[in-house]
Design a binder for these strands. Structure first.
Lengths: 337, 337
DNA sequence: AACGCGTATGTAATCGTTTGCAAAGAAAGG
DNA sequence: CCTTTCTTTGCAAACGATTACATACGCGTT
């Protein structure tokens, strides 16, 4: 009954070699003679030796893990990005540490904490509303943004948010809508801002009216979509089409208006953003802008690994194509309006 | 420009004390004299010292992180459990390492790998379909199951799956349904099995017919719910009520039948399981069984931390209350059927 | 003066690897 | 037979913290 776990010393003793040779056999097998190598591998099997990651990391001055900082784990939107990240990090022998900025008191402070704590070889940021000041920290590990970030030149993987908004507005215009509204993401969030900006400029370039009372503030959540629905129901002069900065808000909206006896898209056309899995199963299925979330995760992880490997803090930014997905939640506006 | 990060040695030098004193000041401040403590803290501030977790962990023979093993990160169901876990682990200074069993080739092998690799002080399992053999490993870290597991006596946090199913069936019976079907989770998954079992025994104890062709196999996903809908539509003799082993399947089902021109609940009553956030925003809002997922995560994390702290491999099992949530997706069966 | 005791600090070993350097031996060339 | 070069291995010093043990000092007691 071997209660204690074997160390490299034990393996060395069993194999009749030095610890150095064991270490080399495991890390660069080509430099040791074939016979020795075999002896060592046998000893490893016999003792059930597993390399102690902590000791290895200490000696090699690395941690073997990257931290993913996101605003809210419970948001399914991030879950798929995580899946993409994991699919790259795991095979590369990096652990994926998850931390959410919301759970603590001050999000920015959390960021600084992780930047300085040396707990990770790299960071991936999924939160679009963190302060850029944190970047000044000397000796910080490489960071990759997996979304846009205000005026920062951090390496990033992002998505054409503005163009997505323009696609939505263009679709409405093509269907004949002239009164188009927008439900935004939280103020201060870059994703929200750039979608709003895209919405605005698309409206003006298409010669459609831009009405402030048709721009409703949301926070990406379903509840805020439901709130927007109530606001919409209470309006005197309603827009016939609404572009939502997130699918979740569109879902919340649809639930309320449908239960109020209105029909989507006959009474109001809507387009979401993200293409979360569920929206294709709704009735009507939601027309939306697809963000390839797994892809975003994969690219971000690859980029970060490259930076860690080469030891640079800068890197290219990657722009990922989005796609307009036409389903059943938008149609021409009701006649006579 | 201090490129290099300060070590405990630097702090000791600046403060004019030994490294031992610095370490003690930081870990148990009461044992050092007030004046020394202040000097050390000043030195810490001056040098910008951050404790090196890797070195600390090596010396203390721990890792400071726990691994969460789940079947599929992208499943929003787990996201909230993760949030609960995180809310406990983070304040307790434990990192949360996420790994999914699906991404690799052999899930069981992954489990064994993490069990033996010594990368974590503890494990939390969210996958209901892993082999119990893995537990035999000597010297393994403590494990907590956050769901049921076949015939294992691992400490766990679980939910009254069988009772949930019985609640759903009871509700249907009370409304007057006599033909009740079930869409299951994936075969071999414990959650799925116990809900199915609960469904079966509830039917018989209520004297309702148990028909095999009314039990459809799903896999918890929306797509499988949609498939079940097509199967239902194709039936000669349809059940008037369906209990789903997951909300997601119920959503998939509802989408298909609604687009096929049927109405929920007038044509078919449905009840889901989980109470995922979205279902209250659907129309009709889904009647379901609520599992307090954040709560599950919290309890599991607390249990695991206690086990780590006391160094035991066994612990109590925690049963979390579920709740029947009546919304709008079930009503009395259509007359004349 | 000797002793005991408590408090505060320092010394140095230790955790388990990795790796620069040196040494040993073999092969090759003159 | 003496260099030179190459391959293979071992020695021992890191990596940066924690902590058992030793030491030093102050102060009260006998």
């Amino acid at each position: 009954m071997d209660k204690k776990i074997a160390t490299i010393q034990d393996v060395a003793r069993v194999a009749g070699v030095s610890t150095a040779t064991v270490s080399r056999t495991l890390s660069k097998p080509t430099v040791v003679a074939a016979a020795t190598r075999e002896a060592v591998l046998n000893a490893v099997a016999e003792t059930g030796y597993r390399i102690n990651a902590t000791a290895s990391n200490l000696r090699r001055q690395r941690t073997g893990s990257v931290i993913v900082l996101l605003p809210n784990i419970a948001n399914p939107f991030f879950a798929q990005i995580l899946a993409g990240l994991s699919s790259i990090l795991t095979p590369a022998k990096y652990g994926m540490l998850i931390a959410d900025t919301q759970s603590g008191p001050d999000p920015d402070e959390r960021l600084v904490h992780y930047l300085t704590s040396g707990q990770a070889d790299g960071l991936i940021l999924l939160d679009g509303s963190l302060s850029p000041d944190a970047l000044k920290i000397p000796g910080r590990p490489p960071i990759v943004m997996a979304c846009e970030w205000m005026g920062s030149d951090l390496p990033s993987v992002r998505v054409e948010n503005g163009r997505g908004a323009a696609m939505a507005v263009g679709h409405f215009a093509q269907l004949g809508h002239r009164s188009v509204g927008h439900v935004t993401g939280p103020r201060g969030n870059v994703l929200a801002e750039s979608r709003l900006e895209g919405f605005r400029s698309a409206l003006t370039s298409l010669g459609l009216p831009l009405r402030h009372d048709w721009i409703l503030e949301g926070d990406f959540s379903m509840d805020s979509g439901a709130a927007a629905a109530n606001a919409w129901l209470a309006m005197e002069d309603r827009p016939t089409a609404l572009f939502f900065a997130s699918d979740e808000m569109a879902v919340g909206f649809m639930g309320v208006v449908q239960r109020a006896g209105y029909s989507v898209p006959e009474d109001v056309s809507i387009v979401g953003f993200d293409n979360i899995e569920i929206v294709q199963h709704l009735s009507p299925a939601l027309t939306t802008i697809r963000q390839p979330r797994t892809q975003i995760g994969i690219r971000a992880a690859e980029l970060l690994l490259r930076m860690i490997e080469t030891g640079t803090l800068t890197g290219p930014s990657d722009l990922i194509e989005i796609e307009f997905i036409r389903r059943g939640s938008a149609c021409p506006p009701p006649v006579g309006e």
